[in-house]
């Protein structure tokens, strides 16, 4: 029983990271219809920012998180303004090629700057100690990740459902032309949401270093999982992405632990089955 809980905690913590990685991708796909296969590169960027700050400059761990998020978000906005916004109107194939190119280039730049090896990260003591929860002991880091993910998801849901900004984004997702017609500045909205998505990926990347590791293959390593979260959760749906990410994380952890022979198949099998039977995802905001 305690084994099961500890594995589940592992899986849910993993799911929280997946959620942070993929929420930006979900928004860009739902809002701009932009297939961004390079979204993982933003997570990698946040990860390297955190590693450099923590190991190079001795910045405390909790402070590295907002800096990594803001830095990645800024890079995202700049990229969006300079090039990516010109890619939105292109056909899907061109978007795929562009973003694969971006992901390759980002991985190569990381490789040239930091080398191909895994980046070490020294976590503070309060995250590495095990916490006794009565039934089971879990490392502080898992608990921190789970709480952090819950807070982030809650904040995002509030942002999108309870603020004027969120209402504008939802309006633009549902019907771009009508939204423009009533005076919503959709292009600027795109830039802000793109930056926001990049910032969340960067935050996830910074949090993930101590859990998943970090090396230049990062953008492609989690690509399939990110796309799955978005595809299953339904592009543009925050709650859908959250449920999909946590479920995938938990399923992955359970199968890898209990049935390791088929563990790595299950996730991809789910993806293929999902796409065959529910090609529009479980909770897409778009009815068409």
């Amino acid at each position: 029983m305690s084994g099961l809980i500890s594995i589940l905690a592992d899986g849910i913590a993993y799911g929280m990271l997946l959620f942070l990685f993929s929420i930006g991708l979900s928004i860009t796909l739902g809002l701009m219809r932009f297939i961004n296969l390079a979204h993982g590169a933003f997570a990698m960027c946040g990860g390297y920012a955190a590693v450099v700050l923590l190991n190079g400059f001795g910045v405390p761990f909790l402070l590295t998180l907002p800096i990594a998020a803001v830095l990645t978000g800024a890079i995202g906005v700049v990229l969006e303004q300079l090039v990516i916004r010109r890619v939105y109107p292109m056909p899907e194939l061109q978007q795929v090629l562009f973003s694969i190119g971006l992901a390759f280039a980002a991985g190569a730049v990381a490789n040239i700057l930091f080398g191909p090896q895994q980046q070490p990260m020294l976590l503070p003591d309060w995250l590495t100690t095990r916490v006794d929860l009565g039934v089971v002991e879990i490392t502080g880091y898992r608990i921190f990740l789970i709480l952090f993910g819950l807070v982030a998801a809650g904040a995002l849901v509030a942002l999108f459902n309870a603020t004027l900004f969120g209402a504008r984004v939802r309006a633009a997702v549902d019907n771009r032309r009508a939204a423009e017609g009533i005076g919503i500045h959709v292009t600027r909205l795109f830039a802000i949401t793109f930056g926001l998505g990049a910032a969340f990926a960067g935050l996830g990347g910074a949090l993930a270093v101590g859990f998943l590791g970090l090396d230049p293959t990062f953008p492609f390593k989690y690509l399939v999982l990110l796309l799955m979260v978005v595809a299953i959760g339904g592009p543009g749906s925050i709650a859908g992405s959250f449920v999909a990410a946590v479920a995938l994380g938990a399923i992955d952890a359970l199968f890898k632990y209990y049935v390791p022979e088929v563990g790595s198949f299950v996730i991809y099998g789910i993806l293929v089955l999902m796409m065959v039977f529910f090609p529009k995802g479980l909770a897409s905001r778009r009815a068409a």
Binding site: L29, V224, L227, M228, F265, V272, P279
Partner: peptide, 28 residues
């Protein structure tokens, strides 16, 4: 049968998924 269904995005995802499945199968 499973690749021909859907639009470009689902095709990309399905082929990606099948690719990783076969890769894992060959690895095992």
């Amino acid at each position: 049968r499973i690749v021909v269904v859907g639009n470009d995005l689902t095709r990309l995802l399905v082929t990606l998924g099948v690719g990783f499945l076969v890769f894992e199968a060959a690895n095992q």
